[in-house]
Amino acid sequence: MVLRRLSRNWFAVFGAVVAVTLVLTAIFAPVIAPYGPTEADYNSIREAPSLDHPFGTDNLGRDIFSRVVFGSRYTVFLGIVIVGIQMAIGVLLGLIAGYYGGWTESIIMRLVDISLSIPGIVLALAIAGILGGGIESLIIAVSLVGWRGFTRLVRGDVKSIMEEEYIDAAESAGVGDIRIMTRYILPNSMSSIIVYTSLTIPTVILWSAALSFLGMGVQPPRPEWGAIISIGRSQLAEQWWVSTFPGLAIMVTVIGFNALGDGLRDALDPKQE
């Protein structure tokens, strides 16, 4: 049903194709890429795109295409791990805040409000800076910034689901708090969580790339897209291809996931059922 509705929306289909392509590329990177990601060829330094090197080479003669292909592994890995952490923290806090209300809710939601008053990227940069950069600090920094969206969403959902009569019915059946949260509230909030997740993935990808670009995330020579752009930045006028192709990869991925998220939102819209 949902799939059928999704398939009717060409933009969402495009998004799904991008997502699937990205994951397949990450899995089969060694097969797809003609060269190794850090394999330097000093005979072909700074070459423009050609048949041998479709995306050209950088200042060390590394094949940009291969680097972008291998870079997809970072994108997928960071996307899944960070969104997973955000979701776990955010959904749990949202459930607790919405279900118990009162002081618990006030404290959690004030925390959200306070952290929302600082621009996300600044907060992430600060955290990554304190932690000293590297892939772990990137994961922690972006995760700590992103959970609050989930909390807001889930808390709102819980509040409206709590108004439903089946929660009263569960209570009169003697169902305990934990079971009400996991069997009654969470499943009924799932479709909005799914939609929000698919719309969060592109943000996470973008921020990971941004932090890496600024040197706070994945460090060169690792072929993370943001890190590749960072290397090519200084020669943008002469060797435009070094930064442009990973940049395009980020753009297509972000647009694709946004399209998928939008499509899912329309397809899961209960009003159409």
């Binding site: 009569e165 089946y166 009263d168 019915a169 569960a170 069997r183 009654y184 499943p187 009924n188």
Partner: peptide, 11 residues
């Protein structure tokens, strides 16, 4: 309850 559609957990 009055409205069985909302008093039964849809999931």
């Amino acid at each position: 309850f009055q409205d069985p559609a909302s008093s039964l957990n849809p999931r």
